[in-house]
Amino acid sequence: MSFRGAVVTFPGSNCDRDMAVALEAVSGVPAIRVWHGDAELPADLDFIALPGGFSYGDYLRSGAMAARSPVMQSVIEAARRGVPVLGVCNGFQVLTEAGLLPGALMRNASQHFICRNVKLKVENSQSLFTAGYSAGQILSIPVAHHDGNYFADDATLDRLEGEGRVAFRYAETVNGSARDIAGVLNEAGNVLGMMPHPERAIEDALGSSDGRALFESAIRSLVEA
């Protein structure tokens, strides 16, 4: 197969290598590494990942500076063309700041940095990212964040729920997120943002392999398309 997956690195990204390893482990093809200052993305990408970390030191707001970096204009255009885009942790924050996903990620309600495995419930098993799971399935996936407290107004939350755009929900108290939302999809279903780190859970040696099916579903859907 000729899968072309890219991982964007911003100054301060720290999960970009993990993301590249996960993409290669599942696709068998090395991920293309893209730097934030690149004006253009490589051509004909099948998948774009925005990794976790602390881009630009979380200056101004988490993800705010990265969302305005040169490469993001190309990411936004690719997302609008339907290219699958996955944002994890800081990548989720970047997607909300860039306007590709609704809502915002605020400081955890506890004020504490939270770093542990959490129970995650699959809400929507129909999306290209989650087709490898069954609805209601409980996963164990690590979180590591200070600003993971998902906020959107009630009308937006109702719309997300009504349209099946809540991909994952915390199955335990974690960070104060509205309606325990852990991951959301865009309207077209090709952009997923989530705070938990599936790329850190792709084999048992890492403590959990529950994240692997997310990459498998996404990459399989691309091959079959």
Partner: peptide, 9 residues
């Protein structure tokens, strides 16, 4: 609107 404030929050 474009950078200094996040109009969602």
């Amino acid at each position: 609107k474009q950078l200094l404030a996040n109009m969602v929050i």
